[in-house]
């Protein structure tokens, strides 16, 4: 019986720029940083209050899980903001929004009251979208 999710992947255009974004802007912690082939690391980060969920920051490039064609197609989709990868929770969305905005994070939707809580939408440095939520 499956008991929990331990790893999830986020595909990014540039692994080193994504490291800066997830660690220095979002405040995530590096869990694992191990070499995985030329110019690529197995890089996982964890949200501050969830140290057992590793988010693998996976660069989209040929020779990983991608062919040349599929890598090109995937990069275009990411750049165009096609993917919404998940929902992050925070204790105080107004404070989190103000801090991330001050750090240059791009928001598509400012904190807004919805029937399920307060929600904002932001984009990572590659173009992936995330919901930022505070429950009612």
């Amino acid at each position: 019986m499956i008991s929990k999710l331990s790893h999830v992947s986020i595909y990014v255009l540039d692994q080193s720029s994504a490291r800066e974004f997830y660690v220095n802007k979002l405040g995530f912690k590096i869990h694992t940083d191990a070499p995985m082939g030329p110019d690529t690391q197995w890089l996982t980060v964890t949200p501050p209050d969830q140290p057992d969920l590793e988010i693998a920051i996976m660069p989209v490039k040929e020779g990983m899980t991608f062919t040349k064609e599929s890598a090109k197609a995937m990069r275009t989709l990411i750049e165009n903001g096609t993917f919404g990868f998940g929902v992050f929770e925070c204790h105080d969305i107004y404070a989190t929004y103000e801090e991330l905005k001050a750090k240059g994070v791009k928001f598509k939707k400012e904190p807004t009251k919805e029937f399920y809580g307060i929600e904002a939408l932001f984009q990572d440095d590659s173009g992936n979208w995330f919901s930022l939520g505070q429950k009612n």
């Binding site: 107004y94 103000e98 801090e99």
Partner: peptide, 21 residues
């Protein structure tokens, strides 16, 4: 309620500024 209608947003900005300091 939209952020701009939130009555105490100016307080948040100042506290967040101090936290970042």
């Amino acid at each position: 309620m939209k952020l701009k209608e939130y009555p105490k947003i100016y307080l948040y900005k100042r506290v967040v500024h101090a936290k970042m300091y």
